[in-house]
């Protein structure tokens, strides 16, 4: 992963995610609020199996470009927001590890909370990403898949 000095940091990679690293990165001297969300893999699913790991499939370039659109849309809606970092794991992710992390900094907490919630919701609906649930003796694509949307089609927050 390469860190640039801009206000956006997007990464889709097989490396283990560290939410603290994203929180540190979005910290800015004029910001009094940082909201970090991370989604972790869990053992339960719509299937009657105990999940032991997840496998995420995507095309990294395509996924990263769609995440950048999410960030651009968040900035239009909450112009006060300063830095935004969104990372998503691909490949095999063990249960209890973060699969996605969103970190947002802002002068005040209201827009940081709102923008972070928008970002994770939009990532789930607009980024090409597929989750395969793996249990002891089998695996299947997630039953919770939804048609992909364009970020411009999402309901106003």
């Amino acid at each position: 992963m390469t860190v640039d000095q801009s206000l956006d940091w997007v990464a889709v990679s097989a490396e283990r995610l560290n939410p603290d690293e994203l929180a540190d990165w979005v910290m800015r001297p004029d910001c009094g609020a940082i909201v970090t969300f991370f989604g972790t893999t869990r053992t339960t699913s719509t299937l009657e199996h105990e999940i032991i790991e997840l496998e995420y499939d995507t095309d990294i370039d395509l996924a990263e470009s769609r995440i950048r659109r999410v960030i651009a849309a968040a900035r239009e809606r909450w112009p006060q927001v300063r830095a935004i970092a969104i990372h998503h794991r691909v490949g095999t992710v063990a249960v209890r590890e973060p699969a996605v992390v969103v970190a947002v900094s802002s002068p005040h907490r209201g827009e940081a909370f709102a923008a972070a919630q928008f970002c994770i919701d939009a990532v789930k609906r607009t980024v090409p990403m597929w989750k395969r649930e793996v249990w002891q003796n089998g695996s299947a694509w997630s039953q919770e898949a939804q048609d992909i949307l364009d970020v411009g089609d999402l309901e106003p927050s």
Binding site: D59, M129, D147
Partner: peptide
């Protein structure tokens, strides 16, 4: 051309 099935990220 990308074939994009229903998604399940996050």
């Amino acid at each position: 051309i990308a074939v994009v099935p229903p998604v399940s990220g996050g």
